[in-house]
Design a protein around this nucleic acid. Structure first.
Length: 91
DNA sequence: CGTATGACGTGCA
DNA sequence: GTGCACGCCATAC
């Protein structure tokens, strides 16, 4: 497995419940701050349930996309204690 | 090795 | 705040 991809998966897996990280943050911890786009692609192809990909959001505060569960993303985050309004994270 | 691609990011109108 | 164009980078072919 590619080093970068492996790192990204590992980082996302470690995101604590009730917390969120931007694609950029994840990419940076994975070793490439500019590979935010790659993070998204990896998430889209990921199918692991232990992968809280719904905790990964845009750097601008928007929740972003979520193929498998679509609108569920914001709902899941809200369930974990994250305040969301109109698809927007309130920190 | 060159081209195409995508759950992003930033800048500008 | 919204919409559009261009840039970035690892992967797939």
């Amino acid at each position: 497995m590619a080093h970068f991809t492996d790192q990204v998966l590992d980082v996302v897996r470690k995101i604590p419940r009730g917390k969120t990280m931007s694609y950029t943050q994840v990419a940076r911890l994975a070793g490439n701050a500019k590979a935010s786009r790659k993070v998204g692609e990896i998430m889209s192809k990921n199918t692991d349930r232990s992968m809280p990909c719904h905790r990964v959001i845009y750097s601008n505060g928007r929740v972003g996309e979520y193929n498998r569960l679509q609108g569920e993303k914001a709902d899941l985050l809200r369930r974990e204690g994250v305040i969301i309004q109109n698809n927007h994270i309130i920190t």
